[in-house]
């Protein structure tokens, strides 16, 4: 059950992604599924940095990976502002390019890349995001 804590900074995204990719591949996920896990983790961590902590605030992200015979579970914990993803509507980009508003694209990628996604704002503060990818 690998677990690492990272400073919530953009320059650490590559390191966080490498951490989950190594674990995904060790758990037997194929290349395409491992990329989905990497993409979802990247987007989730970016959202934590931008919305939960905000650009100028320091914070940390704890990343826990569990693997079993069904697949991989990624748990991301932060200690920033509570985030309610259920208030963010499902985004579709069916407008002409000139009128396109790309806000919400990260959340769409997370939901599309993973099989199960659960956001929790914790009573003790911060958030926990649990994402599952099946083989």
């Amino acid at each position: 059950m690998p677990k690492e804590t990272f400073a919530a900074r953009y320059e650490n995204l590559a390191q966080i992604c490498e951490f989950v990719t190594i674990a995904s591949e060790a758990a037997g996920l194929g290349e395409a599924d491992a990329y989905c896990v990497e993409l979802a983790t990247n987007e989730a961590c970016t959202n934590i940095m931008e919305y939960s902590y905000g650009e100028d605030k320091e914070g940390k992200i704890e990343c826990l990976i569990e693997a079993d015979d069904k697949g991989v579970t990624i748990v991301l914990r932060d200690w920033g502002k509570p985030f309610d993803a259920n208030e963010v509507p499902e985004k579709t980009f069916d407008k002409p390019l000139e009128k396109l508003d790309l806000r919400g694209i990260g959340l769409r990628l997370i939901r599309g890349a993973m099989d199960e996604v659960e956001f929790e704002a914790l009573p003790v503060g911060g958030n926990r995001l649990t994402m599952r990818k099946y083989r």
Binding site: N42, L97, L102, I105
Partner: peptide
């Protein structure tokens, strides 16, 4: 690897070109 930030740059640039 291409994240949403990269997609955003591509589409904003494409919008300005078009």
């Amino acid at each position: 690897f291409l994240s949403s930030s990269g997609v955003w740059v591509l589409l904003e640039t494409q919008k300005r070109c078009r």
